[in-house]
Amino acid sequence: MKKKWLLFFLVSCSLSLAAQQLDSLQKHRFVTSSLLFGVGLSNNYDTYISPLEYTGTEIRVMHERMRLTKWGHNRISLQSLVQAHLSYCSNPADNNHLLGGLLNWNYGLHYHLPLTASLKLLVGALADSNLGFSYNARNSNNPASLRAYLNLDLSTMAIYHFKLWNHPYVLRYQLNVPVAGLLFSPEYQESYYELFQLDSKGNNLRFTSLHNQPSLRQLLSLDIPIGLSQLRVAYVCDIQQSKVNNLRTHAYSHAFMIGFVRSIYRIKQRKPLAMPAY
């Protein structure tokens, strides 16, 4: 009988200790990251290169890292979202091609507003930096166009946790809209020879906002549990447009992506951990 009481005491103690350990886990140390790959449809238009819209396909890769911070009683999260895509498009007559690419990095904060136990809204701001190009092999002195712009985005997100057949799923929608920024653009017919070889002093750095850069990025994703892992499927709607220096551009992408989500608990360790000996 004594042994039973002793066993009960030990189990209780260990459970209590485990519970204390769980309580002591700090939310801001959880990091969720994902790596997605996808393909999609692309529509590119740049009047510096051609008055026509080029349509085709693209490949896209996206890496996201998100974690809660200590700020605002763990109600502020930090998001780093890197996307890169390459597109190969054709003109309407299908006798010329345009190669395009863009590297985009969004980095910023969101404030969490729980609506119910399973639904929360996030609102925040992101730094949105972009570097890319369009290349048209058939043109003479205007074969390529450089894309470089930096924006401040307003961002909203809705995250919904739900269960199907007793398995947890996460549905998320995110919308980023640039509201102010700086964009590099040659002037209407300024050649890159003039820009880079002759040190032309044109209006090449332009302030942008909704009136001349009506753009948005939308992301809809669903996290699906598979064993101990989480599969993420996503749809990206990337609408980039600009109207500066009498030049008009757009790059529309609709990409379907798939990849895995990884959750990590970061341990604060000032001294380096010894490698395990074998």
Partner: peptide, 18 residues
């Protein structure tokens, strides 16, 4: 300095621009 452009039917056009 010539630039290039194109027509809907796929024909290319080159012209002096600078």
């Amino acid at each position: 300095m010539p630039f290039s452009s194109e027509l809907l039917n796929g024909w290319s056009v080159r012209f002096s621009s600078s």
